[in-house]
């Protein structure tokens, strides 16, 4: 019995504790990203933004959460109820499970697997299901059109994201995320891979359905796209899932290109790694919000052209260049 507890119960409790340590701060951060987005865009557009609830409006996210919770959940007639309710859960839990492999500091992660980058790619490629299921189950024209758009959009941009990830893993020589970060000691990958950093960031915007690529929910044409029929908690889950996805993708950008938890100078290494990682994520999130405040929405055919005719060939050429350079100079990491 004592052996059973030592072998199974304690490790299980330890894993659950680690998961809680990740998820609870993540949910708080998600709530505050919505607040930050409204304040930053307010400042950029010479407005004030939410500033009434609590000091500086800091309690606004919680007021919104309570408001959404007390609303009624509406199931549209002719919908497929199980799939309808499953869709927001899928979106939300996919945004959460990606954090299982993301190292926030040296050794601070839930699971250190060998194929961490493939795992992240797999999880982000599943994100399309939540949206497609929501669009189909709603039994509504707007929702269905939004889902179709998003399916095509996310599948197209995933291709270039995959090629860029291959460039990074060629330079780092590993699929393990901790080793990728450690390979960036001395030079963060955004310096040698600068064009890919830009393309990756833009593809991330398309992958998370953010402005200027938020076509699945374009208000002016599709009401609210795949979210049209959702209300109350189901809507809140979609909303949280979208913002959690933004944070997750910012984390991936930081790990692949901005050196993860590494400080910019060796002299600054007395500051703990998690602070640097949080700062880098905040920087990426700020860029995303900034883009939303400044760019108009893309037209759908232009979005597809950008994905297939510009980003895909460029990332392919860069992959060949990277491989060629590494082999020619004999720097291939083994």
């Amino acid at each position: 019995m004592a052996e059973f507890i030592a072998n199974y119960v304690i490790p299980l409790a330890w894993i659950l504790g680690k998961i809680l340590l990740f998820v609870v701060p993540l949910l708080v951060v998600v709530a505050y990203v919505t607040y930050a987005e409204r304040r930053i865009i307010g400042a950029m557009q010479m407005r004030i933004g939410p500033n009434v609830v609590g000091p500086f409006g800091l309690l606004q996210p919680f007021a919104d959460a309570v408001k959404l919770l007390t609303k009624e959940t509406v199931l549209p007639t002719g919908s497929s109820p199980v799939v309808f309710l499953l869709a927001p859960m899928v979106t939300f839990s996919l945004a959460m499970i990606a954090w299982a492999v993301i190292p926030v500091s040296e050794g601070w992660l839930i699971s250190d697997i060998n194929v961490g980058m493939l795992y992240l790619f797999a999880v982000s490629s599943l994100g399309v299901y939540g949206i497609v299921m929501a669009g189909w189950a709603s039994n509504s024209r707007y929702a269905f059109l939004g889902a179709m758009r998003s399916a095509a959009q996310m599948v197209s941009y995933e291709v270039s994201i995959g090629f860029i990830m291959i460039c990074v893993l060629l330079t780092a020589g590993s699929l393990n995320l901790s080793e990728i970060v450690n390979a960036q000691k001395g030079m963060w990958f955004f310096i040698p891979h600068l064009p890919m950093f830009v393309i990756f960031f833009i593809s991330v915007l398309a992958e998370t359905n953010r402005h200027p690529f938020d076509l699945p929910e374009a208000e002016s044409e599709l009401v609210a796209g795949f979210m049209t029929e959702y209300s109350s908690m189901a809507f809140a889950l979609f909303f949280l899932g979208e913002y959690a996805n933004m944070i997750m993708m910012s984390g991936i950008v930081s790990i692949l290109f901005l050196g993860g938890w590494l400080p910019p100078f060796e002299a600054l290494s007395f500051i703990p790694g998690i602070v640097w990682f949080a700062l880098k994520i905040s920087f990426c999130l700020f860029l995303m919000i900034w883009v939303r405040a400044t760019f108009p929405r893309y037209r759908y055919d232009q979005l597809m052209r950008l994905g297939w005719k510009v980003f895909l060939p460029m990332s392919l050429i860069w992959l060949v260049l990277t491989a060629g350079y590494l082999v020619y100079t004999g720097k291939v990491p083994v």
């Binding site: 790619f121 797999a122 599943l126 399309v128 179709m148 399916a151």
Partner: peptide
């Protein structure tokens, strides 16, 4: 991971697309 990326992430999306 390959099974999930290729079959779930790409092939099944196309199935779903067509069936819908």
């Amino acid at each position: 991971m390959l099974l999930i990326v290729v079959y779930v992430g790409a092939v099944a999306v196309l199935f779903l697309f067509v069936v819908m």
